[in-house]
């Protein structure tokens, strides 16, 4: 899967309360969650983000709560991929489980600026900052996680094993 989009750059330790504030968690409707995505970090984000845009963030993206509403809100807002220096553990699991593409690359994060156009190949982990003419290789996704993605997510993989009763 190849992606191409405009960069939204964020700093370190973007917690899930900033991705989707808890005051909106009285719903799990993706469309409604998307309208409040990143609200406390950048109130204009939800109205300005375009389908296919890419979030580029520093270390520990998605720290804090386990809410799957965070990757759900990002995906429903149109974010095609998140590239970060590192991800918090539960966010990392959630993104794979519900199908939000994510990649880790310190170099891509260091060189990206707001508005840059970035291409990412989810199969090879190759990232290209088209605006700057730079190419990077993301940290490889563990084969087990790749299998999960190929199966269509955790629940589909369980279903294929015949474990759903």
């Amino acid at each position: 899967m190849k992606l191409r989009g405009k960069v939204w750059k964020f700093g370190a330790d973007i917690d899930t309360d900033r991705i989707i504030p808890a005051r909106y968690l009285n719903t799990s409707d993706p469309k409604e969650l998307a309208t409040h995505c990143m609200e406390d970090e950048d109130p204009s984000f939800a109205s300005k983000v375009r389908p296919g845009d890419v979030i580029v963030a520093d270390k520990n993206f998605g720290c804090g709560s386990s809410r799957e509403h965070a990757p759900i809100a990002l995906k429903a807002a149109g974010v095609a991929c998140v590239i970060a220096r590192s991800f918090a553990r539960i966010f990392y699991r959630n993104a794979f489980n519900m199908g939000l593409p994510i990649l880790e690359s310190a170099e891509a994060v260091d060189t990206a600026e707001n508005g840059d156009v970035i291409e990412a190949d989810m199969d090879t982990g190759e990232i290209r900052n088209v605006t700057k003419g730079l190419g990077f290789k993301a940290r490889p996704v563990p084969p087990f996680m790749q299998e999960l993605v190929k199966a269509g997510g955790l629940l589909e993989s369980i279903k294929k094993r015949g474990a759903v009763v």
Binding site: S66, R93, F144, L155, I158
Partner: peptide, 18 residues
């Protein structure tokens, strides 16, 4: 350990998790 909702669904169905 804390997990997300999809992980919880998987555990509710199978009694296992990776």
């Amino acid at each position: 350990t804390g997990v997300g909702s999809t992980d919880l669904a998987a555990a509710m169905i199978t009694g296992e998790l990776w």
